[in-house]
Amino acid sequence: MLITKVKDHRKIQEILKGYNPFVFKCFGCREVHFPEEEINEILKEGQGHLKGIARIDYLCREEFTRRYLEAFENEVRATKSILVFSCGVGVQVVSRLLEEKIVFPGCDTFYLNGFQGVTAQDFDCEQCGQCWLNLTGGICPLTACSKGLLNGPCGGTTKDGKCEVNSEMDCGWVLIYKRLQSIGRLDLLKKSAVNVRDYNLIIRAAVK
């Protein structure tokens, strides 16, 4: 789940005033948070400076975005700049389709746990390429532990089993311990070899 957060409003107004851009607002991944109302407010304020607005979903879907560019051909041609409210993928797609235009991202993007799949979750998968879940009772130490520790907790667990980084967060290793206890497999903790990540798995996958 990619989530977008509108950049500093003043900065966006400066872009509107200084560049008279054409605006794309992407409101998909539909039904995942997109701050459309906030964006509309900003655009209202800078109304006189826009060359036009296209409201689109799935801006990342290039073949559809192309059709929008055709439909707004004149407006797009009339400006050197495009302001895009979307996740980073959408901005890059527009930029690739309009290489000669200056493309401004209107949002910063972050992600929710569970992006790997299709539903937001309270746990996450880091796509590490070497699943550790067999050793940890099905709780991922990379994502449940702030430090991604593979060989047990650090000393930072609070008395009530929370993480030193954020007291809202459970200590992943306390959760793992409890889970292993409940399935009677604490031996896994004691027996398992010293675990070390292999980052080359990721690098190899990334550059393939």
Binding site: L59, C60, F64, C87, G88, V89, V91, F110
Partner: peptide, 15 residues
């Protein structure tokens, strides 16, 4: 992105 193109976003929070 949702649509499966070549562009990727690191969701770094500071575009």
């Amino acid at each position: 992105g949702i649509a499966l193109g070549p562009e990727k976003c690191a969701a770094c929070g500071q575009c």
